[in-house]
Structures are given as C-alpha cells and as structure tokens.
C-alpha cells in the first residue's frame, strides 16, 4: 500500500470513529480530493464534516481551533505546508496557547496537515520544510509522516494527546510504498521511533536520526556505507519530532562512534540542532565527538531541477556527514 492510501485510510477511520471530527481544506472535495489526492472519498462519505474552504489559511485554522475549543476534533489540510506560515498566528498564539494559558488545561484536538518539502520543482514558495518554525512552542506538538509508521496510529496519537499538532507530510512519500524500502536492513520500534539496522542496533558505527521524509535518503547512504566501507549505521525515525524524547534512545546512541541528525530543512535554527543539544546534554562525557547536523543549504529552494538538487539535502549529504563524523584523524 502506498503512503497516500494509508493516510487516506487513516483519515477515513478518524472521521468514521469520531462523529464530531471535521476535515477542512482547500479543494478537498471529490472528485478532486485535494491537491495531493489525500482526501479522496472523504467528502462523499462524510459530506457534512468534510468542508472545502475558501483560500483562507488563517481563517480556516482559526475556525478549526474554534471547533476544537468546543470539543470537536478538527483536521486542517494546508495545501502546501509553506502556507502554514499564514496560519502561524492561529496555531501558535491561539490554539497552542489556549491549552494552558487560561490556568487550567483546555483540550484542543487540532491537527494541521502540511504537505512538505522539495524535489518536485515547485519553487521557493512551494517546497519548504517549515518544521523548525514550529519547534519549541509550548502546547504544540510537531509530527512527521513516515513510511515506517502506520498513519492510523499516528493520527490516533495526535488526537489522544488533545493538543494542537502540526503534521508534516513529505510530498515525495505519497507515492512510495508503506514499508522498509531496502531488505538489506531490518527494523523494530523503540516506542514511537522506528529503528532500522543491519544487526546489533546498539553497536552501530553511526546512528542517523532522520524524520520520515529523509529516511529513504538515509537508507541509500547506509547501504553504500555498509557495502563499500563495512560501516554499520542504525537509523532512527521518530514520528513525533517535538517534544523529542531522547531517553528511550540512549542505549542505541551510547554504543555508536558517531551520531548524525539529518533533515531537509535549510540551514540555521534546525530541528537537528535541538536534538543534538539533547543528546549532548545526556551523553556529553561519553561522546567521541559532537553530534553532526546534515540539512539543506542556507538558501531558497530553486525551481530548476539542477539548481534544486544542489540546495536540498541529498543521500550524498548524509553519506559525507557520516564519514566526517567517524573520521578519527
């Protein structure tokens, strides 16, 4: 099953299970079914609760927060995650704040879905990975879709948390299959973190931490490192990026000679920097060298494919970062 179908089915289940759940977004109605076809079939099945909205990202996110305030569950589809910037105020200053700023906890079941990332030539305003801008907001959780996490479970966890969540969905995953893409590796779960390795995950040369959108690029790098240099890497793919819970991962991290955090975000103030800080905090005395960060260049994301490739994090970026962090010279 493709990731898009899995997500679609998870949304079907969410709306079917919860008669007070709504889905709102631009062009989400059948037969169009959303710009990336994720909402296909939903409006036909739940016509009163799947609403196609005007082009009003701030307004619809605020409206969804209003539903959440009244005890409903609201899922908002932002057509391109870049436009979550228009809803930033409603997400950070209203929805997330409301959970705690009135002195007693206010449950807010709100999921803001953001198709994210580049690699498709959509240009500077339609290709960004804005995760980092939503990190560190009290009351707000940041999740990322992955082919190793069943979206039924992920959406259920977000609803269960009763706090606003921004869900980043790397667009390149939609057409990909829901499983590990390379049978050189095996995988297991450490809490909600998928762990991918050859064998002995707690004795890997290098641990790579990467969210779902980057996991495939990490796996390609890992395959090359293993076959060409006999370096065993262990990949950790978290579902929830923030708050990031490093403690369950310490046994895996402790055994490694190096740690790399990889993400597609452009340089500066990244999620990886936050993760690295936590690892440093817990493992500083035992680390052979600082956690390395791999990300896209400090640049807008160009439209033309040959320029876009040079800006965005590639498999080769991760490959080089691993070699560098393991270089003992």
């Amino acid at each position: 099953m493709r990731v898009a179908e899995n997500l679609n089915s998870a949304l079907h289940e969410l709306l079917a299970r919860d008669p007070k759940a709504y889905l709102l977004g631009e062009d989400v109605l059948d037969p169009y079914g959303g710009a990336f076809k994720i909402t296909r079939g939903l409006s036909t099945r739940f016509p009163d609760r799947v609403l196609a909205t005007p082009i009003s990202e701030s307004g619809i996110t605020g409206l969804a927060a209003g539903l959440a305030l009244c005890g409903d569950t609201a899922v908002v589809e932002i057509m391109f995650g870049d436009f979550a910037a228009l809803a930033f105020d409603q997400i950070t200053n209203f929805a997330a704040k409301s959970v705690t700023m009135y002195g007693a906890r206010v449950p807010m079941r709100l999921i803001v879905r953001c198709p994210t990332g580049g690699g498709r030539g959509y240009g500077p305003t339609h290709s960004q990975s804005l995760q980092k801008h939503f990190i560190g907001v009290p009351g707000l959780a940041v999740y990322e879709m992955s082919a190793l996490h069943d979206n039924h479970t992920v959406l259920a966890a977000m609803v269960e948390s009763a706090q606003p969540c921004v869900f980043f969905e790397d667009k390149v995953l939609y057409t990909r299959q829901m499983r590990l893409s390379d049978d050189l590796f095996v995988s297991d779960m450490v809490g909600d973190v998928a762990r991918v390795y050859v064998d002995e995950p707690e004795r890997a040369d290098c641990v790579i931490i990467a969210p779902g959108g980057v996991a495939d690029r990490a796996l390609v790098a890992m395959r090359r490192l293993f076959l060409e240099r006999e370096l065993a890497c262990c990949l950790l793919v978290p579902s929830r990026l923030y708050p990031f819970d490093v403690e369950p991962l310490l046994p895996t991290l402790r055994g490694a000679r190096g740690v790399v955090v990889a993400e597609e975000s452009t340089a500066g103030g990244t999620w990886g920097a936050e993760v690295a800080h936590q690892i440093h905090h817990h493992l500083w005395s035992g680390l052979r060298r600082p956690v390395a960060l791999a990300h896209s260049a400090d640049s807008v994301i160009p439209t033309a494919a040959h320029l876009e490739r040079r800006v965005l994090l590639q498999e080769s970026t991760i490959h080089a970062s691993v070699l560098k962090v393991l270089d003992d010279r």
Partner: peptide
C-alpha cells in the same frame, strides 16, 4: 536564473510570487 520558475519572477518593476 531558473530560481524562481514559472511563478516567481522579478524584472524591473514587474514581480510575481506564488503565495496567494
């Protein structure tokens, strides 16, 4: 330079951008 593409163009006093 191919950076902006179809919907992000700046030339003299002409500008386009892709966010509605």
């Amino acid at each position: 330079s191919g950076v902006g593409g179809s919907q992000h163009i700046l030339r003299d006093r002409y500008l386009s951008t892709g966010v509605q």
